[in-house]
Amino acid sequence: MSGEEVRAEPKPVFKTASFYYNSKTNVKKRAWKSLKQIISTEKALPWPDNVVHYSSINAPPSFKPAEKFSDLSGLPAPYTDPQTRLRFANKEEYATLIGLPMDITAGYLALRGASSIVG
């Protein structure tokens, strides 16, 4: 998509005129593989056992219990509102919290990835 436009601009002299990407597919959009796609193709190959990949050096999951912080202020939150599931630190925050409309509370939960019902 950008190809034509850019070619129209003056090209630096040091570039080879005939260059094109061998591996670029001709689909108009999504011409380049995303990192996710690259990783999954890489994983699918029959590698020897000793090979370490980009994807295999991901951080392990945390084994420590997560601390709880207030969704409103970020302060340590000993309390959770059973209705909205929002965490709060004190009664002033609770007062604001019960006035919040549903979409805002859902947004706060989504921020810390707690929007799924299962979790």
Binding site: N58, A59, S62, K64, A66, E67, L111, R112, A114
Partner: peptide
């Protein structure tokens, strides 16, 4: 240090160093 603040399950920097 606390990726869980954003709902990530990954361990934090110090924990990974420990790992």
């Amino acid at each position: 240090f606390k990726p869980y603040m954003l709902g990530s399950s990954d361990a934090g920097l110090s924990e990974v160093i420990g790992y």
